[in-house]
Simulated assay, not measured.
Amino acid sequence: MIWAEANGGAIGRSGTMPWHLPEDLAHFKRTTWGAPVIMGRRTWESLPNSFRPLPGRTNVVITSDAHYEAQGATTVTTLDEAISLTQNLARDAQTVAEEPRVSEAGAETVAAETRPRRAAWVMGGGQLYRAAMPIADELVVTRIDIDVDDADTYAPEIGSEWVLAERGSQEQSKTGLGYVFERWVRN
């Protein structure tokens, strides 16, 4: 699972992220590139139209409305369906090339280095994070030094079954916000 949270665990306010942190958006893209992303309907709808579906990833939207259409994404009605679908996709391609990059000459290239393909990344929202927490094996969390007093969506609690595997250094965004990247693994 992957998310960014403010002080106190806030992840959303009125269907939006209550901050702008370009470095976290780039981190999210690097981390999830090439792997399916699973999200709830409200998270899907919170993405700007120009970013739906998220490029370079199979987008899976969970909704209780079996007739809901998410153009460019696959819709399912349960987390179990989403997991089953993404496990099948992961078996079909065991590795993923890094995100295409543009060379100085302007030609798009793909890095030769590959990394293991994740079965999927759960990317929100709060209700889906809580439902997926018992089956997740890795958490990638961006901690942002900002208070969001009117938040209405919160990250799940990271319990004692998780171990902090990596913690980046405290960084400062070009927007002025302080942040740090963390990676947690199941104990």
Rank of each mutant, 00 (worst) to 15 (best):
P156S: 12
V185E: 13
D152K: 11
N59E: 06
R30L: 13
P48Y: 02
W33Y: 09
T31M: 07
D24I: 05
T74A: 13
E161D: 15
G34W: 00
T74Y: 10
E45Q: 15
Y68N: 02
R91H: 14
A105I: 10
R183W: 00
E104P: 09
S14T: 06
A112D: 15
I2N: 03
R13S: 15
G159L: 08
T63F: 05
V141T: 03
T86N: 01
D150T: 15
L164V: 08
W3C: 05
M133P: 05
W19H: 10
L177C: 06
W19S: 10
M17G: 04
T142L: 01
L21W: 01
V110Q: 15
T78D: 03
A70E: 08
I144A: 01
A93K: 13
A90F: 06
E23M: 04
P53H: 05
W3G: 04
W33N: 02
E108P: 11
A82D: 07
A107H: 13
G12T: 01
N88R: 12
E81C: 08
W184E: 06
G106C: 14
A105M: 09
I144C: 01
L164P: 10
V76K: 05
W121P: 09
W184P: 11
A165C: 08
M17F: 07
T31Q: 05
Q127N: 14
A70T: 13
G15V: 04
M133N: 11
W162G: 07
A131D: 13
D65P: 08
I144P: 04
P48D: 07
E81I: 07
D137F: 09
I11F: 00
A136D: 04
Y179A: 01
D137S: 13
M17Y: 00
G15K: 00
G34K: 03
F51T: 02
L139E: 03
V180K: 00
G8M: 03
G9R: 02
M133E: 14
A105N: 14
A151F: 06
R118T: 09
G34D: 03
G56K: 03
P116S: 07
I146K: 11
L54T: 14
P100H: 07
L139A: 02
A97V: 11
L177Q: 08
P116Y: 09
R42A: 13
S169E: 12
Y179F: 13
G34L: 02
V61G: 00
M1C: 09
I38Y: 00
T77S: 13
S160I: 04
M133H: 07
L128N: 04
E113L: 14
V180E: 02
A66I: 12
L89R: 01
A112K: 14
W19F: 10
R167F: 05
W44E: 06
N7W: 08
E166D: 14
G176H: 04
T109P: 09
V110L: 14
E81Y: 09
W184I: 08
E69I: 15
A10V: 14
G9C: 02
